[in-house]
């Protein structure tokens, strides 16, 4: 276990290696949020209304959706596929060191840094615009945190599924792009799903943005346990797919390069 903790620690050090990047990326998070503030303020100033959402409701939703967007491992770690394609995987296979767990560790290490920095940027912003923000109660916060944690693993595993396609396709970057952008729409990062006008209850993506954001807002009523069960079920199916693709993929691995 300590080997994966050390890998995570190294990833934290790597993230702090370029301090300006860290600061610049996190500050960049404010731009879309500011854009949303002005857009929705304008939309609501004429007495308009977007679905069932109040101005504060929409601001709060996008606050959480953006936080999740910058924290969940969605687009990241294309180098996992690159290592499979280019033969870098070989250097993991010859060691008593799991390639998959290595990525879990470094993604977790990266998340720790990014989530902290993002919060450090978002909290003062939220305080400036506090009048628009719906603060979660303790129960809502805990439920939101729980859905975020499971959603985190779901995003991680779905990302692994896409990256492991490199065993079969060579380069799955097109799929990764399709998945990343598609998931932002189908997950509720671009528009809250209840504003889309068609139901997406049968897909796992809503557990990445929509459900956790709604949970933080205290708007999940009724069958929370049922939703948690469904969330865990999707994560388990994804885990099964990851293990299947990995096991079969290793037999197809061609170990190009040196």
């Amino acid at each position: 276990m300590t080997k994966y903790l050390t890998a995570a620690k190294n990833e934290i050090k790597l993230n702090f290696r370029y301090r300006f990047n860290l600061l610049a990326f996190s500050t960049g998070l404010l731009f879309p949020l500011l854009g949303y503030v002005f857009l929705w303020k304008t939309a609501y100033s004429g007495g308009g209304r977007v679905g069932e959402y109040s101005l504060n409701g929409l601001f709060t939703y996008y606050f959480w959706a953006l936080f999740l967007d910058y924290t969940l491992p969605v687009f990241a770690y294309g180098d996992m596929a690159w290592n499979i394609k280019s033969g870098g995987l070989t250097l993991f296979l010859v060691r008593p060191f799991s390639f998959l767990f290595y990525y879990v560790s470094i993604i977790a290490g990266g998340t720790l840094v990014w989530a902290t920095v993002n919060l450090a940027v978002l909290v003062p912003f939220g305080m400036v615009f506090a009048r628009y923000f719906i603060f979660p109660g303790l129960t809502d916060f805990l439920v939101g945190f729980l859905f975020t944690a499971i959603g985190y693993f779901l995003a991680l595993l779905l990302g692994f599924v896409i990256n492991l396609l490199a065993f079969y396709l060579g380069d799955p970057s097109g799929f990764r792009g399709l998945y990343g952008w598609g998931m932002m729409l189908l997950g509720g990062s671009i528009i809250p799903l209840d504003l889309l006008g068609f139901p997406l209850d049968r897909l796992p993506f809503r557990f990445l943005y929509f459900i956790p954001a709604k949970a933080f807002m205290g708007e999940i009523r009724g069958d929370i346990l049922g939703l948690l069960f469904e969330d865990v079920l999707w994560a388990s199916i994804s885990l099964f797919l990851v293990l299947l693709l990995w096991k079969r993929g290793l037999r197809k691995y061609e170990a190009y390069g040196g």
Binding site: L91, G257, G258
Partner: peptide, 9 residues
């Protein structure tokens, strides 16, 4: 151990 001069761990 497997070592290649082209790239390393």
């Amino acid at each position: 151990t497997y070592f290649t001069g082209q790239r390393g761990f």
